[in-house]
Design a binder for these strands. Sequence first.
DNA 1: GTCTATACCTTGATAGAC
DNA 2: GTCTATCAAGGTATAGAC
Lengths: 195, 195
Amino acid sequence: MMSMAEKGEVSRQQIVETANRLFYQRGYNQTSFSDIAEAAAIPRGNFYYHFKTKDDILAAVVDYRIEHIRAMLADWDREFADARARLRRFIQMVRGSGKDLARYGCPMGSLNIELGKAQPALKAKARKMFDLFRDWLAAQLKALGHKDAAGLALHLLGRAQGIVVVAQVYGDQKYLNQELDQFEAWLDKQVSSRK
Amino acid sequence: MMSMAEKGEVSRQQIVETANRLFYQRGYNQTSFSDIAEAAAIPRGNFYYHFKTKDDILAAVVDYRIEHIRAMLADWDREFADARARLRRFIQMVRGSGKDLARYGCPMGSLNIELGKAQPALKAKARKMFDLFRDWLAAQLKALGHKDAAGLALHLLGRAQGIVVVAQVYGDQKYLNQELDQFEAWLDKQVSSRK
DNA sequence: GTCTATACCTTGATAGAC
DNA sequence: GTCTATCAAGGTATAGAC
């Protein structure tokens, strides 16, 4: 029973995963049904069995990303008991994505910026990706004894976003790694002063 | 002679200024000729007397922005002899634009991110806006005696970009101002340690 | 559930009258 | 220089056969 996927789930999953990649690499508004259909080898008309509108595809993609983030954060929490180690793991993750980040920017940031321009309804959903990291960061910082953990979490998010933006603007992965080094040192300093 | 604008310069300037605003508020790819025509009260066909393609309009808009930035930086240099005061003026400028920044993001950053996804030729031109600030920041930091002025300039650019991204994601101008306070304090500390 | 055909609209761009 | 009419292409979305 559970091992057998429902009919339609396979092609639906193909659409979501392909759209997820193309939305990241080209942007949401610059990705057409034809683009997704061609990349996923699925006829265009098939889309409307699974999704009513293009916005619905984006909603599914954001849900997909949210689930991925949630699982990743849960993994880190399971893997590391120490909040400091968890935060280092976060930086390590950014570092590992360096190539894509320098090329396409941040999947959360670039999507929010695009949608924030003139598509508030869609942006409201995309913002939830940020909420996940914000709340997770705040929890770690609170565990480390920081008073304004929520404020510091937003600060760290901003630092990370800025690094990625400049790295993308100049296509410079080396800059990204250097800034992450500073980020890590800054983090260690912040943490040790509270221990 | 000089007081009389060439024929066509008026409507051309109208197109550029209207496009500049709309590209910022809606994004380049999400702004159509119809949008610009309607906002500028100019018929669609008129565009092609002044510009061959939509990309040409963007090029003119970027030139327009570059000239604006150049003039602004020159004003600051003229107004303040002290590099530290110039840097504070930079922060003050960001603060003054807070409302738009929290709503539409950074005009340089969001455009570069959009074009960086899949329009490398256009992005190359848009990146020059960053170059202006980067070089200006580096000059000020060098004047203050910083060794790696170029590296620190990119660092500051990243800080500013990240602040604006998060401010836009959460539509939170208060966050932006708080971060700018930190930014200013950080800057003062960096500077005074070298004096 | 899957796929073809197509409707309908908007897009960037052109031709040509004025 | 300005504007109208129009084009071809591409967009989202629908209808309906299989």
